[in-house]
């Protein structure tokens, strides 16, 4: 993508943002004390330039000048900045945290953008045009035109093997990824199988090795998606991206192939057998239940009449 296109696009976005801040009609009624979507327009442009570069080089970590956000590092400062740079007044926003729409982090970020951008929000994956996520990909398949924004704590997949940033950058540049397999080798040597269960490293378009953020490896096959996927790491000041339909392979050994694993149960509320499950301890006697981590997916199925082992029981 040329710089000119990037600039044109930035200008279109600017115009849209200007319209939104002057025209309060429709859904775009945000707190007038803030610029649309909190960040100033120059910052959003800067982030969009990084996003365009990231989309042009899938899996490559683009440095960007991350801003202070009104939340602590580790709570999604990177994701929030990417979301702010992408939001348009007519977007419909969904925010999930470990698949759930109703946890503190998800609720806070949703409210933040309701106040600062005045956008419509939803819990339904199908209705959302932009989804910010922490550590999950929604169960409902994403479609073209949707954007999925990930919050990333540590963007460098080689970090725990090679602490020097100068060296890891060189390794990415020269495509020296033998070290990544050393980690998987260690897993097998000590545990008999690849025990990495989340943040499972992937190779993008046969070139860059990328950390898919701490999503469970169950979600890895769905990284190949019709939606645009953007990754923002606020503290580490990196943005990377997967354009739609780009090739994403999970690293493995020939004799220990990649396996997308999940708890060997059905959801106790909706009975789904192939969704990713959370284990919940329900009493002091070791009683436990398994429920879909994707709350919207589970609620939709229950509304359609599906039932699991414990549905109908009074659950505190």
């Amino acid at each position: 993508m040329s710089v000119q296109t990037a600039m044109d696009e930035a200008q279109v976005d600017q115009a849209q943002a200007d319209r939104a801040s002057t025209d309060q009609a429709g859904t775009g009624r945000h707190d007038p004390a803030y610029n649309f979507a909190y960040l100033d327009e120059q910052t959003k442009r800067m982030i969009r330039r990084a996003l365009l570069k990231a989309l042009a080089i899938p899996g490559y970590q683009v440095p960007f000048a991350s801003r202070e956000m009104p939340m602590p590092y580790g709570w999604g400062t990177g994701g929030v900045q990417v979301t702010a740079a992408c939001l348009e007044p007519d977007d419909v926003l969904k925010v999930i945290d470990q698949g759930a729409d109703d946890t503190t982090n998800a609720v806070s970020i949703r409210k933040f953008f309701q106040r600062t951008a005045g956008v419509a929000v939803t819990e339904a994956t199908g209705e959302a045009s932009l989804i910010q996520t922490r550590h999950r990909i929604p169960e409902t398949p994403l479609t073209e035109g949707q954007i999925l924004v990930y919050q990333v704590p540590i963007p460098e997949p080689l970090r725990f093997l090679e602490p020097r940033e100068t060296e890891t950058r060189k390794m990415h540049a020269l495509e020296e990824y033998g070290l990544m397999h050393v980690k998987l080798y260690e897993d097998i040597a000590h545990n008999g199988a690849i025990s990495t269960a989340y943040a499972y490293p992937v190779k993008v378009e046969g070139r860059y090795v990328m950390d898919p953020s701490p999503i469970p490896k169950f979600d890895n096959p769905r990284l190949e998606s019709p939606a645009i996927q953007l990754f923002g790491a606020g503290r580490e000041q990196r943005i990377y991206a997967l354009p739609p339909y780009c090739r994403v392979e999970s690293l493995d050994f020939e004799d220990h192939p990649f396996e997308a694993s999940k708890a060997d149960h059905d959801c106790d509320l909706c009975g789904c057998g192939d969704s990713y499950l959370d284990e919940v301890i329900v009493d002091d006697e070791g009683g436990r239940m398994f429920v879909c981590s994707d709350t919207d997916f589970c609620a939709t199925r229950r509304a359609l009449g599906h039932a699991g082992r414990l549905s109908g029981e009074a659950l505190a």
């Binding site: 070290l179 397999h181 080798y185 097998i188 040597a189 050994f253 220990h256």
Partner: peptide
């Protein structure tokens, strides 16, 4: 893994 690293670095992918 120390011994295997060089093998993996030149493309060995069979554990």
């Amino acid at each position: 893994a120390n011994v295997g690293e060089r093998l993996m670095a030149v493309g060995a992918r069979h554990y």
